[in-house]
């Protein structure tokens, strides 16, 4: 069984690389997307069916129900949305991926708390997943007009730095002490969510595609981290591919807009904004 699943993951990984490559050329892009999608389908079906675990029928039914519900809703939203609303939809979907990574971390933390390496991967997965989730939701809100385009927060830099340092210390404390507290775990999730909001809120609506691309790259990294946790190659390679390709794409998008990544992320506030504006 193990061999079959490994071969399935290997094929899926190859489709990811080939699909991503084909997506970069106008003539092959559509086909590349379908190839990657087929590989993903294979990986999902393989994960559900090919294993030696004893799984109760109830869990199989729950998994099937979850996949069915997610597929139907995802498909309906994707085919119904107007063409102009697609970037914000990408952001929303990306946020869901980040949330999924964070939820996996929440479940796995308690089981792996005594292993510092595993705890580190889990804690990073929760933080990055939470940041991409809330950040993507803010980006989504900005693009569809729910949120004001540019929000100025007083003392933004100081608040931002405090939150970042806070998250790092918090995470390091949890890994170092190996404390198994659900309260602290959800607290960590909350700080990640807060940082995601802080990160995207001051950035203008016109720069949102760049931010979405960056958050997308982060979701890839969260997926790869989860891959390390499970020693799962398709997640690791798929996630890292998205992570590194996403960063290159983000920089390319900035260049196309005649901006630098730094000016997009940090230009929205402080002295730079005053000088530019």
């Amino acid at each position: 069984m193990g061999i079959l699943l490994n071969i399935i993951y290997l094929i899926a990984t190859v489709t990811f690389v080939v699909g991503l490559k084909m997506l970069g050329h106008p003539e092959t892009a559509k086909k590349g997307n379908l190839i990657a999608a087929a590989g993903m389908g294979l990986a999902i079906i393989g994960t559900v069916l090919v294993h030696d675990l004893e799984v109760s029928p109830l869990i199989y039914m729950l998994i099937a129900a979850a996949i069915l519900v997610g597929s139907i809703i995802g498909w309906l939203i994707a085919i119904k949305v107007e063409m102009t609303k697609m970037p914000e939809l990408v952001s929303l979907f990306n946020g869901f991926g980040g949330a999924s990574a964070a939820l996996i971390g929440l479940v796995e933390y308690g089981k792996n708390v005594n292993d510092a390496t595993q705890a580190t991967t889990i804690v990073s997965g929760i933080i990055i997943g939470a940041i991409t989730f809330s950040g993507s939701l803010i980006a989504w809100g900005k693009l569809n007009g729910t949120l004001k385009s540019v929000v100025r927060i007083p003392y933004y830099n100081s608040i931002n730095n405090i939150v970042v340092i806070g998250i790092v210390i918090f995470a390091a404390f949890m890994v170092a002490t190996g404390v198994d507290s659900q309260l602290l775990l959800y607290g960590l999730l909350a700080t990640g969510l807060v940082y995601g909001i802080l990160f995207v809120l001051p950035i203008g609506g016109a720069d949102m595609p760049v931010v979405i691309s960056l958050l997308n790259s982060l979701t890839g990294i969260a997926a790869a981290i989860t891959g390390i946790l499970y020693n799962n190659m398709v997640m690791l390679v798929g996630g890292i591919l998205v992570g590194s390709a996403g960063i290159i794409l983000t920089v390319a998008m900035c260049k196309a807009m005649n901006r630098t990544l730094g000016s997009v992320i940090f230009g929205a506030f402080g002295a730079t904004a005053a000088a530019a504006g």
């Binding site: 990811f16 699909g19 991503l20 997506l23 970069g24 050329h25 106008p26 892009a29 590349g32 997307n33 990657a36 999608a37 993903m40 990986a43 999902i44 994960t47 559900v48 998994i63 697609m86 970037p87 990408v90 979907f93 990306n94 991926g97 999924s100 990574a101 939820l103 996996i104 595609p209 979405i212 691309s213 997308n216 790259s217 979701t219 890839g220 969260a222 997926a223 989860t226 891959g227 946790l229 499970y230 799962n232 398709v234 997640m235 798929g238 996630g239 591919l241 998205v242 390709a245 996403g246 794409l249 390319a252 998008m253 196309a256």
Partner: peptide, 21 residues
Amino acid sequence: LHTPLMSGANALSGVVIVGAI
């Protein structure tokens, strides 16, 4: 192709579903 590629990469990052399963 920037936006479609971003969208395609976003779909790929959904590989985290394997972990959820």
